[in-house]
Deep mutational scan, measured.
Amino acid sequence: LKGVVVAGGVLAGAVAVASFFLRNKRR
């Protein structure tokens, strides 16, 4: 169960970083 929580956190972080980079590329 702990691994699932960690994986979810990593996935959420990756999505946040990806969206951040996409926003920067638009400018």
Rank of each mutant, 00 (worst) to 15 (best):
L1C: 13
L1V: 05
L1Q: 01
L1A: 08
L1I: 06
L1W: 11
K2I: 07
K2H: 10
K2A: 07
G3T: 12
G3S: 06
G3M: 15
G3Q: 09
V5D: 01
V6M: 15
V6S: 06
V6H: 04
A7W: 05
A7M: 09
A7K: 15
A7V: 13
G9P: 05
G9F: 05
G9C: 06
G9R: 05
G9D: 04
G9N: 06
V10F: 13
V10G: 03
L11Y: 07
L11H: 01
L11S: 01
L11P: 00
L11I: 06
A12E: 02
A12G: 08
A12N: 02
A12D: 01
A12K: 05
A12C: 12
A12W: 14
G13T: 07
G13S: 06
A14E: 00
A14Y: 11
A14Q: 04
A14W: 10
A14F: 06
A14N: 01
A14P: 01
A14I: 14
V15L: 12
A16W: 14
A16I: 04
A16P: 00
V17M: 15
V17P: 00
V17W: 09
V17C: 07
V17T: 04
V17N: 00
A18H: 03
A18K: 02
A18R: 03
A18E: 00
S19V: 14
S19Q: 09
S19H: 15
S19Y: 08
S19L: 14
F20K: 03
F20S: 03
F20V: 09
F20T: 03
F20C: 07
F21E: 00
F21P: 00
L22A: 04
L22D: 01
R23W: 09
R23L: 10
R23M: 03
R23H: 04
R23C: 09
R23S: 06
N24L: 12
N24K: 14
N24D: 04
K25A: 11
K25W: 13
K25C: 12
K25S: 14
K25I: 12
R26F: 12
R26E: 10
R26I: 12
R26T: 12
R26S: 13
R27P: 11
R27I: 11
R27L: 11
